[in-house]
Nucleic acid binder design. Sequence first.
DNA 1: GATATAGTTGACAGGTATGACAGGTTAAAT
DNA 2: ATTTAACCTGTCATACCTGTCAACTATATC
Lengths: 188, 188
Amino acid sequence: MSELHVLTTGEAARYCGVNFRTVIRWIERGQLKAYKLPGRGDHRICVEDFVGFLRDNSMPVPSELAAASRKVLLLASDPELTAAGRQALQQVGCDVEVAGDSFVAGTLMAGCKPALMVIDANLVGVNGFQILDHLRSRSEYANVRVVVIAPAGERDQQRWLNAGADALVAHPGERSELAAKVKLLLEV
Amino acid sequence: MSELHVLTTGEAARYCGVNFRTVIRWIERGQLKAYKLPGRGDHRICVEDFVGFLRDNSMPVPSELAAASRKVLLLASDPELTAAGRQALQQVGCDVEVAGDSFVAGTLMAGCKPALMVIDANLVGVNGFQILDHLRSRSEYANVRVVVIAPAGERDQQRWLNAGADALVAHPGERSELAAKVKLLLEV
DNA sequence: GATATAGTTGACAGGTATGACAGGTTAAAT
DNA sequence: ATTTAACCTGTCATACCTGTCAACTATATC
């Protein structure tokens, strides 16, 4: 079942540093969409509506709410691979963020809450296994899907799967392969 | 849930002995980051941004606000250094988060919004210069203070300063040195 | 040292959204 | 079933917004 994620006025108020009365007034004015419960008239705000409202008013969006299901983080530095990957991912409707090193990847992981991460295993200075380990050991990242771009036919392939990778793509050019696997993983 | 701690223009003005009109002008000029409420256009200033602004202009930081941003991120993996560093930092009242690699450091930087970061320059697999570059080039991280633990008497020391480090500590043991410099940077 | 000039700040006024409070009710937790 | 905690409504004082103008500060020039 699809669990509807909603907020109360109090929660919304705390998220934007405001009194709950003010949130109710925003709703009354029609600036923020919400529905009412029959009993006391409690307001419930769908997270999507709330995030949209925050964006419309250029207010900061709390990272735990930003979870956009089509956001993908690509960790790669080779310009060719980066460009090809971005294009392939955008073609299947993804919102792509690119990181060139582990640190930036980390900031984007925590800041943008992507649903999926693509790691170029050949990237020097990046330990993909370490990253995967960390993701799998943290509940807040445990269900981020991970696709690894790794040379075909090596024993590493099995290592990646054991470490928790959701899919492997045999190196570079196969942009259609990447796109297909990402699409599949995001649709489940 | 992440509760947003924010200030109004009036509060910010009182904190730095200034007219609220002036605070608004700082915001309009882009010197102080803030967002607006949809109604009357009230400004809300995140405490971290405000403290960063105060530090950037060497204005005194009120203790009750400094307490809110005493969070420090320690990037190190050597167990001895990690333990010593954590202890030293806690002794000067810091709230310490430890990362063992760049990726984790990135997630903590974006997730915990530390006011200061300590980087062990000897950590293999970590390019501190790259991290520093990234911090300095992003407005949201630009006023995070950075202390580097680097071997004394090398030409690297100057490179670190040029790259934007706020202070250097000559390698390991000198825990009192680390604590003192961190304390200084957080209090100015 | 005195004067001119540009830029920043503070004061004031009119308008209005926001926060605080109180009394009542229900949703949620146990 | 009971208790606790959070939400609702209405009202009022407060604090914030905008715009304008005078006062102040810093810098440059004579």
